[in-house]
């Protein structure tokens, strides 16, 4: 039986960081509470202190400058998906967020909570990883920035230290000659969680070849699968089905899929390649959206 936990509701970031410095090892932070509550009720979490970030003022902004879209950690997913700044500067992210869970979950789940959860089938990390998003982190003494790809360490595991808190996510804005998409496969019902999600972005050069490509896959790997080497090899190639298939095959070969009730490791590996090809075709057409496979 779990001992009763102490509840904390700090009103400032400084108070929160002080609590984490004192109790970090035995504390859990709760923001929207959607992931926390499921694990807590199931007895899968142990903590003596529950620290609610909901009383904090701020950290909810969604704003853009010339280079990046910056999202406060406590911004609700639903607010981010509807924010003009997101829709204008990162339409694929805005659309992908609309496919996350359901309205009720998105109404309370926060962007900071989403990345800190490090769920291997969560949709936003695919798009954020492909866009080279950076996680901003604070502790009592200062802070650091970590690329999402370094922040997400393993299946439900991040590089965050117990006394640290995610304050936001910075998402570089792609130039206008990039097109992208997020393709989400539900292997079971329309109410299911993601089996495989593919974020794909493609930049056309003036000569018709590819000037750049980004592909990140969730659900097929403990953390979003991104292969920068493979992406680089793609630059200068014609955006043909053959080239897409070759890139997709490299991803499928590199994946280390986790098996669950939505598909075996073998299934995930097999469907990954055709889904990447499909996503790249959409990216090449510049659909700038998110759709179900």
């Amino acid at each position: 039986m779990r001992a009763p936990a102490a509840m904390h509701r700090p009103e400032t970031l400084e108070e929160l960081l002080a609590i984490l410095r004192e109790h970090g090892d035995s504390a859990k932070i709760v923001a929207g509470g959607t992931a926390f509550t499921i694990l807590w009720k199931a007895g899968l979490l142990q903590a003596e202190h529950i620290v609610s970030a909901t009383g904090l003022h701020g950290l909810t902004d969604v704003r853009a400058d010339d280079e990046a879209l910056t999202v406060g950690a406590l911004a609700r997913v639903r607010d981010v998906e509807r924010a003009e700044a997101t829709r204008r500067n990162s339409p694929v992210l805005a659309s992908a967020l609309r496919l996350v869970a359901n309205v009720r979950v998105r109404n309370v789940a926060t962007m900071g909570g989403n990345v800190a959860e490090a769920d291997y089938t969560s949709d936003p990390p695919a798009v954020l990883s492909a866009l080279d998003a950076v996680v901003t982190i604070r502790d009592k003494d200062g802070g650091r920035d970590l690329p999402l790809r370094e922040f997400l360490v393993d299946y439900f595991e991040t590089a965050l230290r117990p006394d640290e808190f995610v304050t936001g996510v910075r998402i570089p804005i792609l130039a206008a000659d990039w097109g992208g998409t997020y393709l989400k496969l539900l292997s079971r019902s329309a109410e299911d969680r993601t089996c495989i999600g593919v974020a794909a972005f493609l930049q056309h050069a003036t000569d018709g070849t590819c000037a750049g490509v980004r592909v990140a896959v969730v659900g097929g790997n403990p953390v979003p699968l991104r292969l920068p080497e493979v992406e680089r090899q793609f630059v200068g190639q014609e955006p043909s089905m053959e080239a897409f298939a070759a890139l997709a095959a490299e991803y499928a070969a590199a994946a280390d899929p986790v098996a669950d009730n939505r598909g075996t490791a073998s299934y995930r590996r097999r469907v990954m390649a055709p889904l990447i090809v499909r996503a790249l075709r959409r990216a090449a057409r510049g659909t700038n959206d998110a759709v179900f496979a």
Partner: peptide, 16 residues
Amino acid sequence: PANSSLSEYALAGLAD
């Protein structure tokens, strides 16, 4: 039992 929850046990919904 390996799927005794409505997250792991899939049911058809409106969109199906």
